[in-house]
Design a protein around this nucleic acid. Structure first.
Lengths: 202, 202
DNA sequence: GTCTATATTGAGATAGAC
DNA sequence: GTCTATCTCAATATAGAC
């Protein structure tokens, strides 16, 4: 029970702090969460938090950077999709949806800052998430128009319509214990949109 | 310059407090806004706030109730729409969109609480907004299926697809000084959805 | 109804021992 | 790297005069 060789000197504390902060920021919001609560939940004292992160803002920014790194890593795995544009857009949306479910607390935190007003939280560029997704879907839609799979029209409208279906499905997951939209519902909504994109103009 | 007949003893103070609270809650979030700031912005002292509303929670709840009353009043004016189901759903979404623009601070506050986690704000049933809109669009879609204007299918998917387009357009208005989606873009997105709802199943 | 003045609590942050 | 103890400040809220 004596402290044996501990080359990694209780680095757990850092991880516990991050986990506790994520949980509390998500449940109560950034401003309403105190450093005292975070430390209590992590089982450490306040100076430990100030040691690893510099401030309350510091631990928040660390969480945001970690999340965005994961997002970019996910996007990097998208080149392997094949098939029709409809199929690939569906696949992309399913992947983003699944990743959001798996990281629900992180996504909740991001939404809470994005819509919840800064709350005193330090600025972090949250739009890059949306911008990146717009880029990806835009490229796919353009390809679909080029190949004739999709009827000509304003590309932006098509992209936003697809993104809208994905967004609302994710938002339902965020805000309801029993979400009224699941992954399959999202797919069906996206198929309605693609039916509209293939239909002859009325 | 003496205080003349003042039967309405500076009731303005109450209105100024509500306006200031709305502005500050919207800009900084509920938890991050202090009573001191609200009173400063309203040009009154703290006891005035505690006199009219009972607490910080009280002024917040008053704002929420006022907003919901306006929303219900808007819904009451919807019976007059005529035309195809597509036309009426578009009309409904345009009305909600316009009303949201006109009351952008209120909508921002609602979103900030809905997605932004309670932030220590007292509970208020925000889902009733969404529930009511789902009801309205659902009834219209069912009518469209009955008349043959819309192809048979899962009504919920159709309703959510339409609501998704409206939601994302409003959310863009909330979060960007220069929204990438305007009212016309929303209409075009909704038309894509309705094209899909009328198209023959592929 | 509105003020001044103040009570009380808890926040973020740090000094310094170990 | 982690602790105890403490500083400083601002928060919500109220008492009591006018």
């Amino acid at each position: 029970m004596t402290t044996t060789t501990r080359l990694q000197p209780t680095t757990e504390a850092r991880e516990r702090l991050l986990a506790a902060a994520l949980d509390l920021f998500t449940k109560s919001g950034y401003a309403a969460t105190s450093v005292r609560e975070i430390c209590l939940a992590a089982g450490v004292t306040k100076p430990v938090l100030y040691y690893y992160f510099k401030s309350k803002e510091g631990i928040y920014l660390q969480l945001m950077e970690d999340s965005y790194s994961l997002f970019e890593a996910m996007l990097a795995d998208l080149g392997s999709f094949t098939g029709t544009v409809r199929r690939r857009v569906l696949h992309f949306c399913e992947n983003v949806f699944d990743a959001s479910i798996q990281q629900l607390p992180q996504v909740k935190l991001i939404y809470s800052i994005y819509f919840g007003t800064p709350q005193g939280a330090p600025p972090f560029n949250l739009e890059q998430y949306y911008d990146r997704m717009l880029q990806v879907i835009s490229a796919l839609m353009l390809e679909g128009i080029g190949s004739g799979e999709i009827r000509p029209g304003k590309v932006d409208d098509m992209v936003w319509a697809a993104l809208a279906c994905m967004s609302i499905a994710i938002e339902e997951q965020l805000c309801h214990c029993n979400p009224r939209l699941d992954r399959e519902a999202m797919v069906r909504m996206l198929n309605i949109v693609f039916d509209g994109l293939e239909a002859r103009q009325s």
